[in-house]
């Protein structure tokens, strides 16, 4: 395009403005150009827990870039950078949550002319058959990662039939590796429904798996939307705590609001245990240790009640 050549010249000119605005943060991703040359399959995951699965299944045959790999970034407020776009543009396989959680990813895919040559796995709809409007925190569904592992193995096998066997073997191995989590869940699963309150609907799928009933979905939705909870919802939560209707309170420590802080304080003073969870994977933990740590808190909370 002729227009583009003009743009390049101006782009180079405007680079001099860098001295005025200071240097930006250096690129954080690995050097991908070398990988492209090596013939590995480029995989991009919107969130790092999906990236972990892709890496486990793909092994040395793939290069995985996770775009949201920092727990301090709120996925709801993420603004894609050119590096994210570059990664998506170069990718053969793109994995994201979908169902409205990370819509920016669909835009990044569309922005690339090779959009229809990419394999896209929207975990929410393609793997777990959820719809837009459903709770998007689907990585809290115990079967989510095992199902995704198999799906990724299938897709990678189509792209790279030579390594199909390895992909499926690695998927099985990864599912095997997650076994302690399943054992923990069946260990903690309640025989009769147990009430809990949550600060945000992050933990809900796990709560369902544990046969626990979330009583305050209204308040949780308001906190997640950044809205003020209605006074009656707040009063209900306070009553749940004071009358010990709930076994424990689940707090998303990635989104602290004064309302939640007050509820946590009230819960502590009423000897209601508080289970601290995060929406996204904390730095330095893999999916298994992250989930296990949270479930151990649940176990402690249940024991606390038993005493």
């Amino acid at each position: 395009m002729n227009m583009i050549n003009g743009f390049v010249r101006y782009g180079v000119m405007s680079l001099s403005l860098m001295f005025l605005v200071g240097c930006g943060s250096p690129a954080t991703q690995d050097n991908k150009s070398a990988d492209t040359a090596s013939g590995k399959i480029q995989v991009v995951a919107a969130e790092d827990f999906w990236g972990e699965v892709a890496q486990a299944v793909g092994g040395q045959d793939v290069t995985v870039t996770s775009i949201l790999n920092n727990p301090t970034v709120d996925p709801h407020e993420y603004e894609p950078t050119p590096d994210a776009s570059k990664a998506v543009s170069d990718a053969k396989l793109v994995i994201y949550t979908g169902i409205g959680y990370d819509e920016w990813m669909s835009k990044l895919i569309q922005a690339s002319a090779s959009a229809n040559q990419k394999t896209v796995i929207r975990v929410g709809t393609d793997v777990l058959h959820k719809q837009i409007g459903d709770n998007p925190h689907v990585w809290y569904i115990p079967s989510a990662l095992p199902s995704l592992a198999n799906d990724i193995a299938d897709q990678l096998s189509k792209m790279d039939p030579a390594h199909a066997k390895e992909y499926h073997q690695r998927a099985t191995a990864y599912i095997q590796k997650l076994q302690p989590l399943n054992r923990m869940i069946s260990h903690l699963k309640q025989t009769s429904s147990v009430n809990i309150d949550v600060s945000e609907p992050v933990f809900d799928y796990m709560a369902t798996a544990l046969h626990m009933n979330v009583c305050d979905s209204g308040l949780a939705k308001a906190v997640e939307d950044g809205n003020d909870p209605s006074p009656s919802e707040l009063a209900d939560v306070q009553n749940d705590i004071k009358t010990k209707k709930i076994k424990f309170f689940v707090e998303n420590i990635q989104n602290e609001t004064p309302t939640v802080a007050n509820i946590v304080k009230l819960a502590r003073s009423n000897n209601i245990p508080v289970v601290q969870v995060t929406e996204t994977k904390p730095t330095g933990k893999d999916y298994l240790t992250w989930m296990m740590d949270q479930l151990q808190q649940v176990q402690k909370a249940l024991n606390n009640n038993a005493q």
Partner: peptide, 27 residues
């Protein structure tokens, strides 16, 4: 805020559809 609280489901996430990003523009 009223409509947001009246709407069932993840309305906040759907809002993301509305606010574009300059590096995510299709042809």
């Amino acid at each position: 805020l009223l409509f947001l609280s009246l709407t069932k489901g993840q309305s906040n996430a759907m809002m993301a559809l509305l606010f574009g990003s300059i590096v995510g523009i299709d042809a």
